[in-house]
Nucleic acid binder design. Structure first.
Lengths: 342, 342
DNA sequence: GTTAGCACTCTCAGCGATTGAGTGCTAATC
DNA sequence: GATTAGCACTCAATCGCTGAGAGTGCTAAC
């Protein structure tokens, strides 16, 4: 259902006001702010219509109107102009990205923290598991007598390491040889395709060092277990303390608990999203715990898997800003991943 | 100044009650709870004395008394019996420690989270920088054309890694040789003692690969910069949401902000502490931001440097439980570091 | 030294009156 | 027919008041 121009203007005006003030918006203030050339009474009539249509609601009879979730939905779908990063923000972002030539995880957390600062909502970045990348190199480095460090490097440059026990009799050279043998057998193998029979052959090759081989396999198993999980970076969770809708302690605690725990956060983000900016408003969210919050999330291409980046905030959210910023940062992550890291 | 037995009993009674309920304690309830063989009127007199001495204070005339910070101090110094972990708690702890044979940082975070769960306060563990450990092994592993991974293993098994650029012409074997050369020169050198002239010699040795050498040195510098910082693990920050003294949003935000940022947290913890359990109450804290909170912190021996573990909570804290638990866990970290990791 | 008794203090919850923002309706106007 | 001015009405929020309740401090008696 489409709205005529005037109704649209009024709806937008109410949304903007309400998002800013968190207070119900009255007919007078709509007229004042947007100095439309109509009277408050006319606006009242239009507002009554909008309420009938479901785009507005009234907390109680003698209060102003607030946008309903359906109202926000209409705004987001039919009227919203995404507001992209302005010059000063871009400057800050570039500074951040340039100063840091470190690990991918550093960049992700910097971008996440930038996102939360710019939008003033909690941000999250989900980095998918690396199951599609390939073994590149396996090394075993002695640390102390009986302890060694197992290193696995994948083709995308992800490093996994784990301490393992080795016989104290074994020499550094021998460990190196074992590492090389593993490299030979596994190099180019995708992590999830690692075949047991290849490994068996390996075990035959080095039969006098079976104990070490077994330790290594065990460690690789554990590492893969770990790497199977996608990682989640959360930033700016405390931003919700600024939102008046969360002055209630119980609500606050429920939300903050989710925003503190990777696992909980992962559960509330929709599995299937498009690469574009996805917005889910209030009760549109499947997860019960966040049915008074909104999500703005986009996918980015992380070595063939879809990563996710977005913000979570109150239904009364600056969708225009959030959507624009999330979109920009999604693109930047895409770029970085395709150019800088290969 | 020492108190007579009866005053002590009354003070303790008031402290216990107040810590539990967060409400001022009246003379009647003191008599009732601890069924002392004296009347409320007598208790009132004693309470008036305790107030004169500064151990109690009165929020307003017709309310009960609450312990002053000085009262808590007296209790902690002269009366407190530390309450150690009970059997069921020990069982949980053992389970946690056994299931996890991974990295040291995992253990630290598990212990931290256990501490916050048992005490219901926010916990922190500070792991000192590793500046006293020695180089053990340097490796350079090619990832893709023009990119390689630099790995440094120290004698305590800490691994540092960083991606570096290398000439795309360079071979895997050559990188390995360079790594070996570094290992030869640096092995056994303490990180903070790494001498520039040793490195210069190295640079001479491999003069046809100066670019790579320089890249490696640059990366080592950055890594050492990073490793110079102690790391901080915070757990259970949201526990303060349960404390009625933080129902005020501004206070809450101030405290949570500190508990979310490693750097801020580090600043509020006293530099100099003894290895034993240190307790600072309210205004005893130098940092202004936490002058309505208390710290319970102990030092543990982390490869010769002092690490710190503790909790932070309201002045109205169960010091007996917090002190006992912190002490136990301090000892456990000490043990783990001396036995398991060497 | 201890206690019972009592007047006094102060907070807190509940209640009614007041205020003010905002609506909805009606009748007049463009 | 759309728009607007005017006005009665509604309802949350605020203020001031009151009474109840908890607790103290003092005094006088034990």
């Amino acid at each position: 259902m489409s709205l005529d121009t005037r109704k649209s203007k009024i709806l937008e005006s109410i949304i903007r006001d309400y998002v800013e003030t968190a207070e119900p918006v009255g007919s007078r203030s709509v007229v004042r702010k947007h100095n439309l050339r109509i009277s408050a009474a006319t606006v009242r009539n239009e507002m009554a219509d909008l309420e009938d249509m479901g785009y507005l609601e009234q907390p109680h009879t003698s209060a102003g109107r607030i946008p309903s979730e359906m109202g926000f939905r209409y705004y987001v779908d039919c009227m919203m102009q995404k507001e992209t990063l302005d010059d000063s923000e871009l400057e800050i972002l570039n500074k951040i990205l340039n100063e840091n030539i470190g690990e991918w995880s550093d960049i992700v957390s910097k971008v996440g923290s930038f996102l939360s600062q710019v939008t003033n909502y909690a941000s999250f970045v989900i980095v998918p598991s690396i199951k599609l990348s390939e073994f590149k190199n396996v090394q075993i480095i002695p640390i102390t007598d009986g302890k060694a460090m197992l290193l696995v490097v994948t083709d995308v440059g992800v490093l996994m390491h784990r301490r393992i026990d080795v016989p104290s009799s074994i020499s550094s050279e021998e460990l190196q040889l074992i590492g090389k043998a593993f490299t030979r057998v596994l190099s180019g193998t995708r992590l999830e395709e690692m075949r047991r029979n290849e490994l068996k052959a390996l075990r035959e090759d080095l039969k006098n060092r079976r104990k070490v081989i077994d330790k290594v396999l065990e460690a690789v198993d554990v590492m893969m277990q770990g790497s199977r999980d996608e990682s989640v970076v959360i930033s700016g969770a405390l931003n919700i303390l600024n939102e008046p809708e969360f002055k209630d302690m119980d609500k606050l605690k429920r939300i903050l608990t989710i925003l503190e725990e990777d696992i909980l956060l992962k559960q509330i983000i929709p599995e299937k999203i498009s690469e574009d900016v996805n917005i889910t408003i209030g009760k549109e969210n499947k997860a019960e715990d966040i049915q008074e919050m909104s999500l703005v999330v986009a996918g980015y291409n992380n070595f063939g898997e879809m990563g996710k980046i977005g913000v979570i905030g109150p239904v009364r959210m600056e969708y225009w800003k959030a959507a624009g910023t999330v979109e920009s940062l999604r693109n930047i992550l895409d770029q970085l991943l395709s150019k800088k890291f290969f």
